[in-house]
Simulated scan of single mutants.
Amino acid sequence: MPTILVADDDANIRELVCLFLRNDGFATVEATNGREALALYASTHVDLVVLDIMMPIMDGWTLCKELRRANSDLPLLMLTARGETWEKVKGFELGTDDYLTKPFDPLELAVRVRALLKRYRIGSVQTIQLGEVALDRQTYKVTIGAESLSLPLKEFELLYKLAETPGQVYTREQLIDQIWGMDYAGDNRTIDVHIKRLRERFAATPGFRIETVRGLGYRLEASE
C-alpha cells in the first residue's frame, strides 16, 4: 500500500488527515515540522507528501523545495490555511503538485491523493515477484510456482510491505503503524511473531529472506 507522509504542526489536523487516509487504504507517517519530515523521508519509503506551509523550524516552502530537489518524481500536496493566489503560485513554482486550503473536506483530500498517485502511476503495480513466489495485492493470493498458498491477512500485508522495497529497514514501530494502524494497542512484539511465522512458511522457498537488523528492525533481501 502507498505510504503518505503528513507534515503539519497541528496535531488535530495530522490526526484527521491520517485517519481518513488510513480508512482509504493508505499507510501514514507523521512529522511536526519540515526538518522532521525530511528526516523521515530519508529513512522511510514515502510515496506522497501532504505538507503544511506554516510550520516551525522548517516551513513548508523550504520543505517543498528540499523534497523536490531530492526527488523530482515525488507527489507533493500543500494543505494550508493560507489561500491567497500568490501563495498558490509560489507553491507551484517551488514544485508542489496540488493545493488544498483549510478548512478542507477530508473526502476531497483523499480523492486528490488518489489522483496524484494515479498521475505518478504509484500503487498501480499490484503483483510482486520474489523468485518463484508471487504476491498479488488485489486478491491477497500467494503462489509458489503453480501452487497457491493462503496467508492470514496481516502476514500477507507484512510480507508485501517488506517486499515492496527490498533492502529497506523497517522498525517494529513503523510496521505496526503502517499495517496495524497507529491506534493498535497491542505489543509491537507481535511483529516478531508474524516474522517468525513467515520465515517458517518460506524456509524452503528460494527467492528471498527476511533479515533481522539488530537494534533496528527487519528488511527483506531478494535473491539474485
Rank of each mutant, 00 (worst) to 15 (best):
F92D: 10
D52P: 06
E224P: 03
E36G: 06
A134R: 13
P103E: 09
V111E: 14
L130Y: 12
T80Q: 04
D177E: 11
P103R: 03
T190N: 07
Y140H: 12
P206G: 05
H194L: 14
F208W: 02
G217P: 00
E155S: 10
K141F: 13
P2L: 03
T32S: 14
L51R: 04
A81D: 01
E87C: 01
L94A: 06
T28C: 12
Y170R: 00
E84V: 01
R209L: 06
T96Q: 07
A134V: 14
E108Y: 01
L40N: 11
L40V: 13
I210N: 12
L40K: 13
K102A: 07
N71R: 14
G167V: 05
E173F: 00
A146L: 05
L48T: 06
A31W: 04
L5Q: 03
A163Q: 09
G207K: 05
L51G: 03
L158F: 09
L220I: 13
L19P: 00
A203D: 07
T80D: 10
L67G: 02
D52Y: 08
L175D: 06
L135I: 05
L135F: 03
F156E: 06
T96Y: 04
R209T: 14
T44H: 14
A134H: 13
D9I: 02
R197W: 03
E87T: 04
M58N: 08
D98P: 00
T139L: 00
P56A: 01
N33W: 15
T165R: 13
F156Q: 03
E93V: 01
Q178I: 00
K90C: 01
